[in-house]
Lab assay of single mutants.
Amino acid sequence: MTEYKLVVVGAGGVGKSALTIQLIQNHFVDEYDPTIEDSYRKQVVIDGETCLLDILDTAGQEEYSAMRDQYMRTGEGFLCVFAINNTKSFEDIHHYREQIKRVKDSEDVPMVLVGNKCDLPSRTVDTKQAQDLARSYGIPFIETSAKTRQGVDDAFYTLVREIRKHKEKMSKDGKKKKKKSKTKCVIM
């Protein structure tokens, strides 16, 4: 069974824990209790493949930012979460993405942009803004509501699919490099 290491990042209060708990335990946590770091595991079937999701729910508070490099190193894919009623959390996505790329030393890291709290009427981040940002990053965008469960499975499952595509691409690139290195030079 394939294991996928997913990391949920975003500013404090955007609903990272609520999304994760909704996926794992099928219930909505409405009281806000700032996370330092929590880890969850769940076995699911995605596109006919049974897999184990190892999900790291991270601290959004700035005082825990020193811990970010460590979990970013171990993560295979990242859910970059903002709240649709919090423009600052949307603007912060850029910083999370840049930090992930720096730590992973790669421009090509599996990510999904997630606009959470889409059940709320007080939207300050337009869907088109988020779609445009995701398009500019070359990553999928999904709106979710941890409260109603809308888009929750889709967000995590899409990230797994992005990781699969990335692994497939990397193995193809690896095979191309191996083929090239088999060419021999004969000096007579």
Rank of each mutant, 00 (worst) to 15 (best):
L159C: 02
F156R: 00
V186F: 07
R149C: 13
S181C: 08
M188E: 15
A155L: 06
K167D: 12
A130L: 14
S136H: 10
K176F: 09
F141D: 00
K169R: 12
D132Q: 09
E162M: 09
K128Y: 07
V152G: 06
D154V: 05
T127P: 08
L159A: 02
D153A: 13
K147E: 13
K128E: 14
I139T: 03
Y157T: 14
E162I: 02
A130E: 08
K178Q: 13
F156M: 07
E162T: 03
D153T: 13
S136D: 11
L159I: 09
K128A: 12
G138W: 00
V186G: 15
D154I: 05
R149M: 14
K167I: 01
K169W: 07
R135P: 03
K165S: 03
S181V: 07
D126I: 05
I142D: 01
A130D: 04
H166Y: 09
D153I: 14
E162W: 01
R149L: 10
T127R: 08
R164V: 07
S136G: 06
K182S: 08
M188S: 15
H166T: 07
K178D: 11
R135Q: 12
T183H: 13
H166M: 14
G138Y: 01
F156G: 00
R149Y: 09
D132L: 04
F156L: 06
E162K: 03
G174W: 00
T158E: 11
K176V: 03
A155Y: 00
T127S: 12
K172S: 11
A146I: 00
S145C: 15
E162D: 03
K172F: 10
Y157Q: 14
R135F: 04
F156P: 00
R135H: 06
C185W: 01
K128S: 13
S181L: 01
G151H: 04
V160R: 02
K178R: 07
E168S: 06
M188W: 06
F156A: 01
K165I: 06
S136K: 13
E162C: 03
K128D: 12
K167E: 05
F156N: 00
K182F: 01
L133V: 12
K176S: 10
V160K: 06
Q129G: 11
K167V: 02
F156E: 00
V125L: 11
K167Y: 02
K128N: 12
T127K: 10
Y157R: 14
E162H: 03
I139R: 01
D126V: 05
Y157F: 14
V160W: 02
K167R: 14
Y157K: 15
K165C: 02
M170R: 03
H166L: 07
Q131S: 10
T183F: 01
K169F: 10
A134P: 01
V186S: 15
H166D: 06
K172V: 14
K178F: 09
L133C: 08
Q131E: 14
I139W: 01
D154A: 10
K167M: 02
D132H: 04
Q150S: 15
R135A: 08
D153R: 11
K165P: 00
V160N: 01
K182G: 10
I187R: 14
F156I: 13
D132W: 02
D132F: 03
A130N: 04
T127G: 12
R164Q: 07
V160D: 00
Q131P: 05
R149V: 07
F156D: 00
Q129P: 05
V160T: 03
A130V: 14
Q131D: 08
A155M: 04
S136C: 05
K167W: 02
Q131L: 07
R135L: 11
E162V: 01
K175E: 15
D132E: 14
M188G: 15
M188R: 15
D132A: 07
K178M: 08
M188P: 15
D132S: 06
M188L: 02
K175P: 06
A155R: 00
D126W: 05
